[in-house]
Amino acid sequence: MDSSRRSVLKFFGLTALGLAAKPVFNAFAGEHGKSAMHFEKGAEALKAKQWAMVIDTRKFESPDELEPIIEACNKAHNIPRFENKNHEIKWIWETEYHNAFPQMPNRFLSEEAEQRPYLVLCNHCENPPCCRACPTQATFKRESDGIVIMDFHRCIGCRFCMAACPFGSRSFNFRDPRPFIPELNHDYPTRMKGVVEKCNFCAERLAKGLEPACVEASGGAIVFGDLYDPESEVRKLLRENYTIRRKQSLGTEPCVYYIV
């Protein structure tokens, strides 16, 4: 049985259990751990209070260098490739400085910094407007490590979260993505049409004690760690370098930092 079918069955089983055991009106249902997208955490799992990422943009000169990083994510998460731009699914992608930081469009910027390619992805905001907007809690901030995660089986596809995200981090499955996945990875579920998805900070890899796929493929240019552990490598980089975040003024507290 393939993994997506297994998780569907698991989902139905747990839903039935949940419905029987829980009163319907538990308005602040906070415990999402039992949903289908939960990957069992083993003893080797990496843990943090709030995962965060530091991207050293100085280490990238041309878009070609970002290609393998983006590919690593696409492969790990069964991202489809569509001809029609309207249907596009992106978890992590390359963009230009003024698109990544539209509120910091400094004029006469150092040419080198302006021409660098920039990686953008979900910021796993500490104060995520997408989770605030979602009417079903299908997208939620995981208490245990601050990852903003999706339950693909609960999402009704209303796309309120997409309107709410100020970073354009979310994609919607406008059609069945399965026929368009170049190379199927059986360790990660595929999605059905009609649901939203985005970067999950590789929750499935962290559970197995692995770093995110993009971090692994970056050759040290991207660093991942606990934002609230003063000894973490992320904190060390933040201490030693001047960093910026996307649209800080909106107060969402993005957890992806950029060294420029």
């Binding site: 309207n86 249907h87 699914i89 309107a163 406008f174 059609r175 049409k193 009609g194």
Partner: peptide
């Protein structure tokens, strides 16, 4: 087919 038969996209999602 999915909502792909509409003109909506990743950017204009409503």
């Amino acid at each position: 087919f999915g909502l792909g038969i509409t003109g909506m996209s990743r950017d204009v999602s409503w």
